[in-house]
Design a protein around this nucleic acid. Structure first.
Lengths: 139, 139
DNA sequence: ATCCTAACTTGGACTTTGTCCAAGTCAATA
DNA sequence: TATTGACTTGGACAAAGTCCAAGTTAGGAT
């Protein structure tokens, strides 16, 4: 993730301790935290960081294309640092767990021209739903 | 939509004027209203209907499988009465317009077993994004 | 036809998630 | 190390939705 910070500094970002902490919190695979979760973890490292700054920083990272915003339910948005490899999401209907997944083929290809209604279609987001191993038993 | 009301009555629904109005508002193709929009249109027909009842009724219709809840952005959920024919959604990034679309092939088939992480996968929701004809020119 | 009652509706308070702003602080350049 | 514009802060505000006690009513029972 420190390469991320370097990259952002190259883009004129001022490197504050708050931004560093947010970037650190988002580091890793299969990370899909809500803004509040990011804030909670950031506070653990930098107690005085404010909610507003976390929202600002997340918004900037999304705008810069470094983090994806994922809305898998009607609740809080989640932030996914895995923005540089195309992927989709698999969500557990029981506990809400999320995994990054890689379906094969181009999802856009499945939408025929006569179903595009004149739109210029540029992306397809897929949410696969099911029960994770832990939740399959219970229910 | 009156067949819907009959069906629900068969399931023990009490047929109130409020529920009838909500069902009427949701009638049609390519309908993707937010709860507030449903409320506004319901009020036009039945001025004293409350927001709480609209939320209750929408929640019941979703629970009964008669209406789909669609969250295409991080904003308000939308309610789609076209629950009985499988379809996906095409959303305009400019103005938010939504169309029902029917990609071919089974979206689930594109997710290989080794990308399922032990989940029992039951559904795939696809959101295609792009610009509608009206928004393609501007931007 | 009318009565009864569980089911439904209501309005308002409350929660969650997120945005906005004026005032204070600080990273980075000179 | 002084300066300054970018950044951060906390609190007020807004949008979307939930919850609840009290009042109303659809529809079966009489």
């Amino acid at each position: 993730m420190s390469d991320l910070l370097e990259r952002l500094r190259g883009r004129g970002w001022r490197l504050t301790s708050q931004r560093r902490v947010v970037a650190e919190v988002l580091d890793g695979d299969h990370v899909h935290l809500t803004a509040d979760e990011v804030h909670a973890r950031a506070v653990a490292r930098l107690p005085e960081i404010s909610r507003a700054t976390v929202y600002n920083t997340l918004g900037e990272l999304v705008g810069l294309g470094e983090v994806l915003e994922v809305a898998t339910d009607g609740r809080a948005k989640r932030y996914d640092p895995n923005a540089h490899r195309a992927h989709q999401h698999l969500v557990c209907s029981g506990c809400g767990a999320i995994r990054d997944v890689h379906p094969h083929g181009d999802p856009l290809a499945a939408l025929p021209a006569d179903e595009r209604f004149g739109f210029t279609v540029t992306a397809a987001e897929i949410t696969y739903r099911g029960l994770c191993p832990d939740c399959t038993g219970q229910a």
